[in-house]
Design a protein around this nucleic acid. Structure first.
Lengths: 253, 253
DNA sequence: CTCTTATGCGTAGACCATACGCAGAACTAG
DNA sequence: CTAGTTCTGCGTATGGTCTACGCATAAGAG
């Protein structure tokens, strides 16, 4: 009954199968007191409240009024729980693009949707990703992204690469932004003071002769003014979309 | 003697100061038997050999023939050790761009240099990043990247954003590539069989009516043929550089 | 020689994930 | 109704983690 590889493909962890609704309850035995969904929801609640580091098996079990080891009847390992937490944490995909939107508007909406999720649940960024997406919502997000590029001249592989590019950017940007927020909270500094403090620290460490370009940036003061983070996000996103647009134009010829 | 905030700026952990060569040995007391560098090198050796998960304080101490707690005389916490490991793991920056290279050639070289480092030391991707770079080599990499954009029409903030964009892409791409490698090793599958197996699994899970775009990509077979990962990398990098180029052209007017 | 300081590190505490096994619940076959 | 089967809940225990604390000792200063 362990990880078995049947003809159709490699093994899928039981808890993931149950996320797809592929598992029916066996007829015998006592009625389960918990559900995979209930466990995942409790874990998400803990992460929302106290961060990913607070998510331990015992803490989740306490949240449910169950014993720690009871969870292992439903979930193979903590890693599996984390995978399902990501799926639940992302939530339902943003939906297909409106019919009148071109690919660029569609992908902008798609990117902002992920952006909003990551701003709401920064702990999603701390979950170590262990493989390509196989959970329902994750594949739903991918589906909605692919639909945006459906009519374009890009080949299938190029469409995947483009989405990977965008999602990578969104995650990267969110990581940096939340790091500033978390770092300032940890250091007891107001968020607006974080970048200036960082600039001062770096100024003190570097020798202007060995780091001329960095010194130039520091003295320019761009790090001191805190810009609107949404503008910052838009900037990078537009760069990437410009790059994809250039490719689409070339392919369309 | 705890984290102190003097006039110049916020506190820097002692071990980081010693990485900048800012700490001289106090005249009294027994001669230290270890060095920060020695500890960091040992930790890097462990990570190179057995991955980041194998890096525990006790394992590093064993590597040095010292007791676990001896390390804490040199390093404030494991997080600090990880920060220094990243610095050492990246190694010296690629150097300033050749004088005859334009910005695009320079940044391409810069991106490939990081790409090569991450391919060599995949564990760097698993270190949770906790803040902006303050270690010597990290700032050296930033410096070399900024020099590539020195003559362009971009403002300082835009130069930083552009580098962030590129480094984020490089890390993202390396993460995906190494995940395939690590995942296939963990599942006991040959690396070339990983993506086909993934495609088969997803095909089995999704309903073509609910996931038409995804189904279209799966049946197209792009996931089955394993392309040259270097080509894949070049593709995305060129998209980003195209986007930056579009901006530079607009600014230059 | 004494005082001061820093080092090496043993001990112990507070966590963590999880392997294992047993008591009992709920169903099926007879 | 009974016996057998199967699954759940979960207590116990193992081996791992980081690190706070305190003590003996080494080395230089005066």
């Amino acid at each position: 009954m362990a990880a078995r590889t049947d003809d159709n493909g490699p093994a899928i962890p039981p808890a993931i199968e149950s996320a797809w609704g592929l598992r029916e309850r066996p007829p015998k035995g006592p009625r389960p007191g918990l559900t995979v969904n209930g466990i995942v929801d409790a874990a998400v609640r803990v992460a929302d409240a106290d961060g990913l580091a607070a998510v331990s098996m015992s803490r989740v079990a306490r949240e449910l009024g169950a014993a720690t080891m009871a969870l292992y009847r439903y979930i193979g390992s903590k890693d599996e729980l984390l995978t399902l937490m990501v799926d639940a944490g992302y939530g339902p995909p943003p939906g297909p693009p409106p019919p009148d939107a071109d690919w660029r508007a569609g992908l902008t909406r798609w990117a902002w949707a992920e952006h909003d999720v990551l701003r709401q649940r920064p702990w999603l960024l701390h979950v170590p990703i262990t493989g390509p997406p196989i959970t329902p919502q994750q594949l739903g997000w991918l589906e909605d992204g692919l639909r945006c590029l459906d009519g374009t001249a890009l080949a299938e592989g190029e469409q995947m690469s483009a989405l990977l590019l965008i999602t990578g950017y969104v995650r990267n940007e969110a990581t940096l932004t939340t790091q500033i927020a978390e770092g300032s909270r940890a250091a007891g500094i107001e968020p607006g003071e974080m970048m200036p403090a960082y600039a001062r620290t770096v100024s003190r460490l570097i020798d202007p002769a060995r780091f001329p370009a960095l010194h130039r940036v520091l003295t320019s003061g761009v790090l001191n003014q805190d810009d609107d983070p949404d503008e910052e996000f838009t900037f990078g996103l537009d760069r990437i979309l410009d790059g994809i647009e250039a490719l689409i134009r070339r392919r369309a010829i």
